[in-house]
Design a protein around this nucleic acid. Structure first.
Length: 680
DNA sequence: GCTAGTGTAAACATGC
DNA sequence: AGCATGTTTACACTAG
C-alpha cells in the first residue's frame, strides 16, 4: 500500500499505478474544484485558480516554516540546557519499562479519513482548509516532540533505575524520576485532550463527523498527583514557538563551554559527556552538532533561557525579576542533577526529532514541487531552469531573453495551451510574469464573489505573487483611495499603491497605469479634487454603488452560494477559534506566516454576507447614512468582475511567493518608474 | 442581438 | 522635448 504524502492529501492509492493516478489528480485537480461554485463561463476554472492560489502555496511554506521555527527554538533551548553535566551512569542499559498507552504514542490529530470527510463534504474553502491543515501540522509536530520527549525520559528513567539498582541508591531518587515520568505522561495526556477537544469542537460545528467505524478517541484518565500549571508550563515550553523570536541565535549559555565530541553508547547520537577540564563547578562541555557555542558575554542580559522576566527552562517558568535573580535561579534550581540532565537530553532529542521532521518535510516539499513542476522555493536557492514545456523563469534576464513573450498583443492567445484538465493546476510560471495586463478577451469573469475584504485577506499573497488580482481596476482604485488616511490620493499615490500591494502591477506599468487613468476619468465615482499640492482623487461612494445597482439579485445561485458559504464558514471559524482558545494552541500557524488570520477570514465572510444580504434585501445599494464607517468604506460587491485572470489561468506560481519578498524583487523591471515606498 | 460593464490601446490636451 | 496627468474614443470581450 502506498500512501500519498502530499500534505493535504488523504487518498491512499493502493498501488504504484494508483499512486500515479493520484498524483495526476493532484496536478489536474485543484482543491478548488472540490467546491461547488457557480460556473459562468468556460474560463471558470482558471479564474478560480487565480483566486485560490494562496492556499496551495502558503500551505507548503507554512508546513516548512512551522518545522523550522520549532527547530530554531528547540535548538536554542538545547544549547542552554545542554550546558550541564550528564550523569555518568547514563551508559547503563535500561531495565525498567514504564507502561505507556499505545494511544498516547499515536498522533491524535485529524486522521486522513476525517480530513477526507471534510474535503468530501465540501464545506471548507481553501483558505479554511489551509488554516486547518496548518493547525494539524503544528499539532503533529508538537506531539512528535512530546512523544520523543517521553521516550527519552523513559530511557532516562530506566537508566537511572538501573544505576540505582547497581549502586544501591535510596528510593528517594527513584521517586523523583518516577514523578518526572508521570509528569511527561500527563503531558502527553493533556495534549491528547487538546487534540480531542479540537476534534470535538469541529464535530460540534458539524464540520467533522466521526464514522462509526472509526476508533473513538480515547480519553485517558488523568494521571494522579499532577499539577496542571506545571504541566502547562512543560507543555508550553516544549511546544511554544515564540521563544525563538525573542531570543537571538547568538545568545547562548554563559557557561564556559568547550567543544567535545565523544561517541558513547548512549542512545542519543549527540553525546553529552563530562569535560574533566571544565567540570569543577559542575559545568560541562557539550557539543551541539549544528551550532557554535558563543560566549554569552556579548549579551550580558540576554539569555535564551530568560525572557519576559520568566525562566524559560523547560517546565519551569519561574518568575525572575531581573537577570541576576534569573542567574541565581538558574544555578540553584537548574543545577547539575539528574533532572536537569534528563531534560537536557530530552531537549537534544527534541531538536534531533525536529531536524528529522524538517528534513522529511523538506523532502516532501521538494517532491510536491517537483511533481507540480515548480523549482525549489528555498530561500536563496539558486535559480534552476525549469525543464517544463511551458515554463518561464522568473528572472528579469529570462524575461528579457524572450522578449517575444512579453506583453501579449490582443491577438495573442494567453490561455494555456495545455488541456483543460491540466491547465488549472499545473503550477508553472507560465504567463505569470511575461505577460502584462492584457486584454480580457479570453478571460472569465463574474464567477467569484469578491469583496474589499478579499483584497485585504489575500493581501500578502498578491503582494508577493505576480498573480493578477481578480478585482476590477475601479475596485482597486477605490480600495487604494479608501485605505488612505484622508480618503484621497494623487494619481501617483494610486500607482504606488498598486505596485506596493500587487506584485502583478510591478511590470507593464504603461498598460495598467493607462487603465487606471482611464478608469479614473471614465467612472463618475472617482472625483478629482483640486488640492493645494495639486489634484487628488476621491471616491464618491454613492456613485460607486450606483454602478451596478442589482449586483446579485438576478443570480440566485450566487446568492445561495454566498449564503451557504457563510453558513459553513462561520461555524468553522467559531470552531477553530474556540478550539484554539480552549486548548491554548499557539496561533503561530497563522500569525507567523502572514496568512489570513481567522479573524480576517471571519470578517471577510461577514462582510461578504452583509453585502449580499444588503443587495438582496434592498436591491438598493446606496450607502445609507446609518452605515458604519467600515461598511461604508467596504461595501460589498459580490459579483465584482475580476481583472483579467487569464495569466493566472491555472498556473499559479509557488515560486513567486518565495522568491519575491515583500521588499520586492529588484530584478523585476518596473518599466516606468520606481516604486515610491514612502508615499504614505 | 442589445446593453452594460470592463479592459486595453491610443490619440490628444495640458502643465511642468 | 519629454514626461506626468487627464480626457476621450475605439474596440474587444463577457454576462445578463
Amino acid at each position: 500500500m502506498f500512501q500519498c504524502v502530499f500534505s493535504s492529501s488523504v487518498l491512499e492509492p493502493h498501488s504504484t499505478s494508483c499512486l500515479f493516478k493520484h498524483l495526476f489528480y493532484h496536478s489536474a485537480t485543484p482543491a478548488s474544484q472540490k467546491q461547488p461554485e457557480p460556473i459562468y463561463s468556460k474560463k471558470t476554472e482558471s479564474q478560480r485558480q487565480t483566486v485560490r492560489a494562496p492556499s496551495a502555496k502558503l500551505f507548503i511554506f507554512s508546513a516548512l516554516q512551522v518545522a523550522r521555527q520549532l527547530l530554531l527554538q528547540q535548538q536554542q533551548q538545547q544549547q542552554q540546557v545542554s550546558g550541564l553535566k550528564s550523569p555518568k551512569r547514563n551508559d547503563k542499559q535500561p531495565a525498567l519499562q514504564v507502561p505507556v498507552s499505545v494511544a498516547m504514542m499515536t498522533p491524535q490529530v485529524i486522521t486522513p479519513q476525517q480530513m477526507q470527510q471534510i474535503l468530501q463534504q465540501q464545506v471548507l474553502s481553501p483558505q479554511q482548509l489551509q488554516v486547518l491543515l496548518q493547525q494539524q501540522q503544528a499539532l503533529m509536530l508538537q506531539q512528535q516532540q512530546l512523544q520523543e520527549f517521553y521516550k527519552k525520559q523513559q530511557e532516562q528513567l530506566q537508566l537511572q533505575l538501573l544505576q540505582q539498582q547497581h549502586a544501591g541508591k535510596q528510593p528517594k531518587e527513584q521517586q523523583q524520576v518516577a514523578t518526572q515520568q508521570l509528569a511527561f505522561q500527563q503531558q502527553l495526556l493533556q495534549m491528547q485532550q487538546l487534540q480531542q477537544q479540537h476534534l470535538l469542537s469541529l464535530q460540534r460545528q458539524g464540520l467533522l463527523t466521526i464514522q462509526p467505524g472509526q476508533p473513538a478517541l480515547p480519553l485517558q484518565p488523568l494521571a494522579q498527583g499532577m499539577i496542571p500549571t506545571e504541566l502547562q508550563q512543560l507543555w508550553k515550553e516544549v511546544t511554544s514557538a515564540h521563544t525563538a523570536e525573542e531570543t537571538t541565535g547568538n545568545n547562548h549559555s554563559s557557561l564556559d563551554l568547550t567543544t567535545t565530541c565523544v561517541s558513547s553508547s548512549a542512545p542519543s547520537k549527540t553525546s553529552l559527556i563530562m569535560n574533566p577540564h571544565a567540570s569543577t563547578n559542575g559545568q560541562l562541555s557539550v557539543h551541539t552538532p549544528k551550532r557554535e557555542s558563543l560566549s554569552h558575554e556579548e549579551h550580558p542580559h540576554s539569555h535564551p533561557l530568560y525572557g519576559h522576566g520568566v525562566c524559560k527552562w523547560p517546565g519551569c517558568e519561574a518568575v525572575c525579576e531581573d537577570f541576576q535573580s534569573f542567574l541565581k535561579h538558574l544555578n540553584s534550581e537548574h543545577a547539575l542533577d539528574d533532572r536537569s540532565t534528563a531534560q537536557c537530553r530530552v531537549q537534544m532529542q527534541v531538536v534531533q526529532q525536529l531536524e528529522l521532521q524538517l528534513a522529511k518535510d523538506k523532502e516532501r516539499l521538494q517532491a510536491m514541487m517537483t511533481h507540480l513542476h515548480v523549482k525549489s522555493t528555498e530561500p536563496k536557492a539558486a535559480p534552476q531552469p525549469l525543464n517544463l514545456v511551458s515554463s518561464v523563469t522568473l528572472s528579469k534576464s529570462a524575461s528579457e531573453a524572450s522578449p517575444q513573450s512579453l506583453p501579449h498583443t490582443p491577438t495573442t492567445p494567453t490561455a494555456p495551451l495545455t488541456p483543460v484538465t491540466q491547465g488549472p493546476s499545473v503550477i508553472t510560471t507560465t504567463n505569470m510574469h511575461t505577460v502584462g495586463p492584457i486584454r480580457r478577451r479570453y478571460s472569465d469573469k463574474y464567477n467569484v464573489p469578491i469583496s474589499s475584504a478579499d483584497i485585504a485577506q489575500n493581501q500578502e499573497f498578491y503582494k508577493n505573487a505576480e498573480v493578477r488580482p481578480p478585482f476590477t481596476y475601479a475596485s482597486l482604485i477605490r480600495q487604494a483611495i479608501l485605505e488612505s488616511p484622508e480618503k484621497q490620493l494623487t494619481l501617483n499615490e494610486i500607482y504606488n499603491w498598486f505596485t506596493r500591494m500587487f506584485a502583478y502591477f510591478r511590470r507593464n506599468a504603461a498598460t495598467w497605469k493607462n487603465a487606471v487613468r482611464h478608469n479614473l476619468s471614465l467612472h463618475k465615482c472617482f472625483v478629482r479634487v483640486e488640492n493645494v499640492k495639486g489634484a487628488v482623487w476621491t471616491v464618491d461612494e454613492v456613485e460607486f454603488q450606483k454602478r451596478r445597482p442589482q449586483k446579485i439579485s438576478g443570480n440566485p445561485s450566487l446568492i445561495k452560494n454566498m449564503q451557504s458559504s457563510h453558513a459553513y464558514c462561520t461555524p468553522l471559524n467559531a470552531a477553530l477559534q474556540a478550539s484554539m482558545a480552549e486548548n491554548s494552541i499557539p496561533l503561530y500557524t497563522t500569525a507567523s506566516m502572514g496568512n489570513p488570520t481567522l479573524g480576517n477570514l471571519a470578517s471577510a465572510i461577514r462582510e461578504e454576507l452583509n453585502g449580499a444580504m444588503e443587495h438582496t434585501n434592498s436591491n438598493e445599494s446606496d450607502s445609507s447614512p446609518g452605515r458604519s464607517p467600515m461598511q461604508a468604506v467596504h461595501p460589498v460587491h459580490v459579483k465584482e468582475e475580476p481583472l483579467d485572470p487569464e495569466e493566472a489561468e491555472g498556473p499559479l506560481s509557488l515560486v513567486t511567493t518565495a522568491n519575491h519578498s515583500p521588499d520586492f524583487d529588484h530584478d523585476r523591471d518596473y518599466e516606468d518608474e520606481p516604486v515610491n515606498e514612502d508615499m504614505e
